[in-house]
Design a protein around this nucleic acid. Structure first.
Length: 666
RNA sequence: GCCCGUGUAGCUCAGUCGGAAGAGCGAUUCACUCGUAAUGAAUAGGUCCGGGGUUCGAUUCCCCGCGCGGGCUCCA
């Protein structure tokens, strides 16, 4: 009997008897590892622990605390969910159930068009725990298509997957459900539960258990609204109890900083029913913060070589026909208003207007690059079920610019543009970025190869010189040009896509844009669409959640609140306020109609960066007592001049609060 | 738009197995004038989302709308 030689991730090798499995390998390395092992990864491909290894395999043992191990755990838990549902609803069929970030889901069709209710989750959860307690082994099977079709005769969605797989038309979501090489695999556990699946899975259901079912939702089969609506159950699953608890805690925290809740609590924005879904009104405090954001954006663009333009909210259909929006974006547009025999559409984008500005006169290569900037309000007909506070609305304002340049200018323009973008985002306290470069799609696209290559190289070089982490999405670009999207990561680790830099080789063609070159001839410029914050409304929402409502000093609508200890200190409080206001700060006085403790508390609840208390000592000495947001206690006897200096420093640096005793700026 | 859930005071929510609508916070008024996270009392505030049905009687049960929330899809 010959032995197997297995290479481990650290480069060492191990010899095992022929017929050894992944589990044997793990046990050979150490009993602790054998216990912790979930699957093995053989040459980068996940395998069940009980599968036999081959001589020369390069193997790493995957444990539940790794991403791949967690993925497996969640996938296996999804199977148990399906098993429980099929047990409890005879006649139900299961569609797909992949692992997702933090958990898993499974889609079902219940007999007679039935639906799940929230109460059903409890029963399903209980049945799942029985299956886990029974510690049923996951067994893997492999066979040809016809046998598989027979096995899943009662399950139309499984059959559809098998047929698709056989035809070679596998999409990403289904890739986990079946292999593409003509054979079909499935897993069985318990008496009779089988599920089409490429695996791998944990050895047995006893390895699972740290999960929670979260919600039921409708989901179209294959995400297509023309397909049947299935019943989806979402759950979260983790390697141990502590991780599960931690995750549920983080969810609760995220809910507390929901921008819609904070917008109401801090009196910033509201969504009156009478306006319609996705349409907000801005209250004075919210509008003040928004104005500061917009003023900052304008100042940066003014200093950054942009020319400001304005454009109307509606335009005749001919504009949208020329731009092509009516062909490929009509679903996203509000319907037209018929006026004077013409159709006027609310604008879903600003680009055609900026093109019109470009076209208003003859352009020379000496004028380029020409950068037009506008805080442009646009209206998009989002599905009523898709709107989400400020993060997804039907009317919003883009910090929109269109840059017209020569092809030669592309690389330099992109490099400085990306620097500019990151600089603006950093000013708002965002530090973690993740970029995505989307390249030319495989099918149809416009523009010649040289242009695409120059633009794509330019984007890539810009990313590299900016030192940004990025992933490349091959073929992910629009038909009219490559692009970069930049995500920021917020204070609790969630990514948000904000900025986009998008090359466009199409609109210059459609509008027949030209500039006069150095050679005296006419040439076609390239267009760059770009938005840094994306949408002011959405950016505001992201900021609100990022800071949990506690805006940095320079953005806070009310920066300082002065509390006189008693009525007799009112005059001094007002004098303090007037001095701070004269220095350009936003300050109010809260008179002594309520006990001091109550007013201090109100200031904290309103997340005012500085609550000043002034009494006899302060009036006599020209000082204040400062309660900085986030500080452990008050700082007494602070000279007003000193406090003013700190305020100015904090405003300039973008700090959360002034001075050294409050919140840290990290 | 589709599936599920949900709608009671400005906010957060009780409640009515169908029989006179409640609390806390907030607001207003009065008293208190206070050195650091909720002073006391009083008052005001509701077509119980809208319309229809069942009933002697509907905020409660049923039907249809509308709003909101979670998903599907898309993206700023």
């Amino acid at each position: 009997m010959s032995d197997l030689t297995i290479t481990l991730p650290d480069g060492s090798s191990r010899t095992l008897p022929e017929g050894s499995t992944g589990l044997d390998l793990a046990a050979d390395i150490g009993p602790g590892l054998a216990k912790a092992a979930v699957i093995v990864s053989v040459d980068g491909e996940g395998r069940d622990l009980d599968r036999v290894l081959a001589d020369g395999d390069s193997v790493s043992v995957v444990t539940a605390d790794s991403d791949e191990g967690l993925h497996t755990l969640r996938h296996s838990t999804a199977h148990v969910l399906a098993q429980a549902v099929l047990d409890l609803w005879p006649g139900a069929t299961h569609a797909i159930g992949p692992p997702i970030e933090h958990g898993f889901y499974y889609d079902f069709e219940l007999p007679g068009g039935g639906v799940f209710t929230a109460d059903d989750l409890e029963a399903i959860d209980a049945r799942m725990r029985e299956i886990i307690a029974a510690d049923q082994a996951f067994e893997r099977f492999e066979a040809g298509t016809s046998e598989a079709l027979e096995l899943f005769a009662e399950h139309r969605y499984k059959r559809e997957i098998i047929e698709k797989v056989t035809a070679g038309a596998v999409d990403v979501e289904m890739a986990r459900e079946a292999s593409a090489d003509g054979t079909v695999t499935w897993y069985r556990n318990g008496e009779g539960f089988v599920d089409l699946c490429t695996g791998p899975h944990v050895p047995s259901t006893g390895r699972l258990g740290h999960f929670a079912l979260q919600k039921v939702a409708g989901a179209y089969w294959r995400g297509d609204e023309k397909q049947p609506m299935l019943q989806r159950i979402y759950g979260t699953a983790w390697a141990d109890k502590k991780s599960l608890k931690g995750h549920l805690h983080r969810l609760a925290e995220a809910e507390k900083r929901d921008h819609r809740r904070l917008a109401a609590e801090l009196d910033l924005v509201s969504w009156p029913d009478a306006l319609g879904p996705g349409l907000a009104v801005w209250h004075p405090k919210g509008a003040l913060v928004r104005k500061i954001i917009e003023d900052y954006s304008r100042a940066r663009h003014e200093a950054g070589g942009y020319d400001f333009v304005f454009s109307p909210h509606i335009a005749k259909s001919v504009l949208w026909e020329t731009s092509g929006h009516l062909d490929f974006y009509a679903d996203g547009m509000y319907p037209p208003m018929e006026l004077d025999g013409a159709s006027y559409y609310p604008k879903p984008m600003n680009c055609p207007f900026h093109v019109a500005v470009f076209q208003s006169g003859q352009r020379s290569y000496r004028d380029l690059p020409q950068r037009f900037f506008e805080l442009g309000a646009v209206y998009r007909y989002e599905l009523s079920g898709a709107v989400h506070g400020l993060l997804r609305s039907r009317g919003f304002t883009q910090d929109d610019s269109h840059i017209f340049c020569t092809p030669d200018q592309i690389p330099e323009e992109l490099a400085s543009l990306l620097d500019f973008t990151l600089s603006v985002l950093r000013a708002f306290g965002f530090e973690d970025f993740q970029a995505k470069l989307s390249t030319r799609p495989a099918e149809k696209s416009v523009g010649d190869d040289a242009l695409w290559n120059m633009a794509t190289d330019g984007l890539q070089k810009a990313l590299e010189s900016a030192g940004l982490d990025y992933v490349v999405e091959e073929g992910g670009g629009a038909f009219y040009g490559p692009k970069i999207d930049v995500d920021i990561t917020d204070a609790i680790g969630r990514p948000w896509q904000l900025s986009t830099i998008q090359l466009d080789f199409n609109l210059p063609e459609r509008f027949e844009l030209e500039y006069v070159g150095a050679d005296g001839g006419r040439h076609r410029p390239v267009m760059i669409h770009r938005a840094l914050m994306g949408s002011i409304e959405r950016f505001f929402g992201v900021l609100l959640e990022h800071y949990a409502g506690a805006f940095p000093l320079w953005l806070a609508p009310e920066q300082v609140r002065v509390l006189p200890v008693a009525d007799e200190h009112q005059a001094y409080a007002e004098a303090v306020r007037d001095r701070l206001v004269a220095a350009g700060h936003r300050v109010t006085v809260d008179p002594a109609d309520e006990p001091l403790g109550k007013r201090v508390r109100a200031g904290k609840v309103d997340k005012v960066p500085h609550v000043l208390v002034v009494g006899d000592d302060d009036a006599f000495n020209g000082t204040v007592g400062d309660n900085a947001r986030g500080a452990d206690g008050p700082e007494r006897d602070l000279a007003i001049d000193l406090f003013l200096g700190r305020l100015a420093d904090a405003e300039a640096s973008g700090a959360l609060v002034a001075g050294s005793t409050g919140e840290s700026t990290s």
